[in-house]
Simulated scan of single mutants.
Amino acid sequence: MSSTSSLRVLVIVASTRPGRLGPAVADWFVAATRPAATEGGITVEVADLAEIGLPLFDEPAHPASGSYAHEHTRAWSRRVAAADAFVVVTPEYNFGMPAALKNALDFLYHEWSWKPVGFVSYGNTSAGTRAVQMTKQVVTTLRMMPIGATVALRLADDTRDGRISPSVKLDDAARAVLREVDRVARVMRPLRDSGDTDPAGPVDGLRLAPARGDDLAELLVLQRCCWVQEALANDTLDLPPLRETLDDLRASLSTWRLWCVRRHGRLVAAVRARADGDTWLIGRLMVAPDQAGHGIGSWLLGYVEAQAPAETTRCALFTGARSAGNIARYERAGYARGTAGDAPDGSVRLTKSRQSVG
């Protein structure tokens, strides 16, 4: 294992029923792998779904939007997003995974992407392996990478009095799982860190990437089309997005980060952002009028919020004071309106704590 950079592995205890063996299995895994983790610069943490207590999936927006209405989702998002890899400790219920595990996976989307996952299963005849096979079908849809190394514990052979029986063979198997998730997580790290990957969007054919010089003319046309509705809603043509020239847009590349979204090659959405002290300013969020209503805007907002530098503590954006539809959408995404004077005449400023960002 390489110790060139730190890596975080989250061990997820999938069972939530009283009398479960899961916590004992997780404790054994952490203890068995502790020396190797220390040597390799790996932090191993445990997330017990019984303690976390997620309700049945209750978010109104699609998880791919990254727009979360509830603090329990945001807390789970922060924990999963901070991890580089996962080890799932799971029993088998009726030839499948526990419902609590499926529910925990379903709450999020981007936070799981481009990360490896290993398994420690336990049970009777199959030692929980059928639950693992079922879970693999789900995690690959989340763009996770199931690894080959596993541990499968047969209760009659490998446990005694509610604990894992001492075994050099099992300890070696646990270390093999850790070694493999470590190796794969480090290889996949560029996919997680890259700014021009394609987070799965709410509709097919979307390609999200930083804006380039040859995008700008098309972006300016899209911007003017989108802000016609704003001009009508606010009864004015004196709006900065309508006054902006191609030279202005080109100059903005030196002070703003811009992203474009194409669908089957056509530019359909865009957004910009920059840090201003402790605030991540988000601007010019736009979706082509004929593409509105499909969740692209919410998805793009969630993406740009996630790009905020660590030193920022809040996100902020502006919209027209009479843009009721926009204001309602941002408030549903967790933003709150500031007081009068926080924004230029004719507009409102909305802010959101980064602790509330998914």
Score class of each variant (00 low, 15 high):
Ser65Arg: 05
Leu21His: 11
Gly53Leu: 09
Val30Leu: 14
Val46Asp: 08
Pro55Cys: 06
Phe57Trp: 11
Val30Asn: 08
Glu45Gly: 12
Arg74Ala: 06
Thr43Asn: 10
Ser77Phe: 00
Asp48Gly: 05
Asp27Gly: 14
Gly66Asn: 02
Trp28His: 15
Phe57Cys: 11
Leu49Glu: 01
Ala32Cys: 10
Ser67Ala: 13
Ala37Leu: 12
Pro23Cys: 10
Thr33Asn: 07
Ser67Glu: 09
Ala69Ile: 03
Glu71Leu: 12
Thr33Ser: 14
Asp27His: 13
Pro55Thr: 04
Glu51Cys: 07
Asp27Cys: 09
Leu54Gly: 01
Ala32Asp: 09
Phe29His: 07
Leu56Cys: 06
Thr43Leu: 12
Leu54Ser: 03
Val30Met: 12
Asp58Ile: 01
Leu54Met: 12
Tyr68Gln: 09
Phe57Ser: 10
Glu45Cys: 11
Arg74Phe: 00
Ala31Glu: 15
Trp28Arg: 14
Ala31Gly: 13
Leu49Gln: 02
Ser65Asp: 12
Ala61Asn: 13
Asp27Trp: 01
Ala69Tyr: 00
Ala50Thr: 09
Leu56Glu: 13
Thr38Trp: 06
Pro23Thr: 08
His72Gly: 00
Glu51Trp: 05
Glu51Tyr: 05
Pro55Arg: 03
Arg74Asp: 02
Pro60Ile: 05
Ile42Phe: 02
Phe29Tyr: 15
Pro63Asp: 02
Thr38Phe: 05
Thr33Ala: 15
Leu21Asn: 08
Arg34Tyr: 11
Gly41Cys: 10
Ser77Val: 00
Ala69Asp: 13
Ala50Ser: 14
Ala32Thr: 05
Thr43Lys: 10
Gly53Ala: 14
Pro55His: 03
Gly41Leu: 09
Ala69Val: 04
Leu54Trp: 01
Leu54Phe: 01
Ile52Arg: 13
Ala75Met: 09
His70Phe: 06
Glu71Arg: 11
Gly41Arg: 04
Ala26Asp: 03
Ala69Pro: 05
Glu39Ala: 15
Ala31Lys: 14
Val46Ala: 14
Trp28Pro: 11
